[in-house]
């Protein structure tokens, strides 16, 4: 066991636990301590080798361990760094670290479209939450943003590459949950993209889980009928006796009246699905009678509520921005005309 202290709060965890996991354990022990948990955009505890890419979870290790108390010279990715006995970590208590993390968030946003108001993920987007909490008022990026046309990858999944933050989660789903990955990352640097290369359908029993793990609105459910703002739908926990042995059958139905608009996995307090479901459950079981309803799902409305603030903040920023780019200009005009 190792004792680690994050923002002054200590916990004993098994050896090999990462700083991020330890922080989540603190948050689970007492939700009032959730602030010690770094934001994670690419790590996913259910996907092996995930994490390390986005750098939003960076923390400052102010004391390496009891044995070697020296601080670590650079911020480290908490999702990929194991705790040591006696380690002390700053997540929200180090101004330099917060500044560095804001920097990372700014980088994630410079090429991200400002289309939250029309994005299918709005209200469920981790990037939106993150930018609300760690973002600057206005983007200082004045160049044209990277754009891609949305494409269908099969009948059930749509890829809006423009929104992708290259977290690699969907690639790991392809590798680890399906019986053969057909999509991946092509090109390199800032023109890297998620792609099947030659237009191919991602057809596989478990491919739909990509939608759930995607932290932004880059992979969306094409069968989500009347793609409706999520906060107008009513989520209920439900299960079915799915014949697929690998499928947990535990899902959330997003209902409007008696109609099932969408089926997703159940997410825990860290925004991760608790267990994966198969594509039949997700895309085809849209009849409420095929499910046993357990009751209303408690959704952390954090992001839905912050959506309002966020949008306001973005719009104000846009109106004040000294040098908006072309899409921003169009948007600004629209806002002014309103």
């Amino acid at each position: 066991m190792a004792k680690v202290t994050i923002d002054g709060i200590s916990i004993e965890v098994p050896d090999g636990t990462t700083i991020l996991q330890a922080a989540r354990m603190i948050g689970e022990r007492n939700t009032a301590d959730r602030h010690v948990v770094p934001p994670a955009m690419c790590y996913y505890s259910k996907l092996k080798t995930s994490g390390g890419y986005c750098r939003t979870c960076i923390v400052k290790v102010t004391k390496g361990s009891d044995k070697d108390p020296r601080p670590m010279p650079k911020p480290v990715a908490s999702c990929r760094t194991a705790v040591m006995d006696g380690m002390e970590v700053a997540n929200t208590t180090d101004p330099a670290l917060i500044d560095a993390r804001n920097g990372v968030v700014e980088m994630l946003l410079i090429n991200h479209p400002l289309d939250c108001p029309i994005c299918d993920q709005a209200g469920e987007c981790h990037l939106q939450d993150l930018s609300y909490e760690n973002g600057k008022e206005a983007s200082r990026y004045e160049f044209e943003r990277r754009t891609f046309d949305p494409i269908d990858i099969g009948d059930t999944i749509k890829l809006h590459m423009t929104r992708c933050i290259l977290c690699y989660r969907c690639v790991k789903v392809g590798e680890q949950l399906t019986d053969g990955r057909v999509h991946g990352v092509i090109n390199r640097g800032d023109v890297a993209e998620i792609s099947t290369y030659i237009s191919q359908a991602i057809e596989n029993d478990f491919s739909g889980n990509m939608i759930d793990v995607c932290p932004v609105g880059a992979l969306t459910d094409k069968t989500f009928r009347f793609a409706s703002r999520v906060w107008f739908t009513k989520p209920v926990d439900a299960h079915c006796n799915c014949e697929n042995p690998k499928c947990s059958g535990n899902a959330v139905l997003w209902m409007k009246g008696n109609e099932v608009l969408r089926v997703t996995g159940r997410k825990d307090m860290w925004g991760e699905v608790e267990s994966f479901i198969c594509n039949t459950c997700r895309f085809d079981r849209k009849d409420v009678n095929a499910w046993t309803i357990e009751g209303p799902r408690k959704i952390d409305h954090h992001s839905v509520i912050s959506q309002g603030h966020y949008q306001l903040k973005r719009e104000q920023a846009l109106l004040a921005s000294p040098a908006p780019n072309v899409p921003e200009l169009a948007k600004r005009k629209e806002l002014k005309d309103r």
């Binding site: 390390g52 890419y53 990026y141 640097g189 800032d190």
Partner: peptide, 18 residues
């Protein structure tokens, strides 16, 4: 460096081009 960034992590992928 912009041309050679592998694109895995956000600060380098986005920052070098900026």
């Amino acid at each position: 460096y912009h041309h050679e960034s592998c694109g895995q992590c956000s600060p380098c992928r986005e920052g070098t081009g900026w």
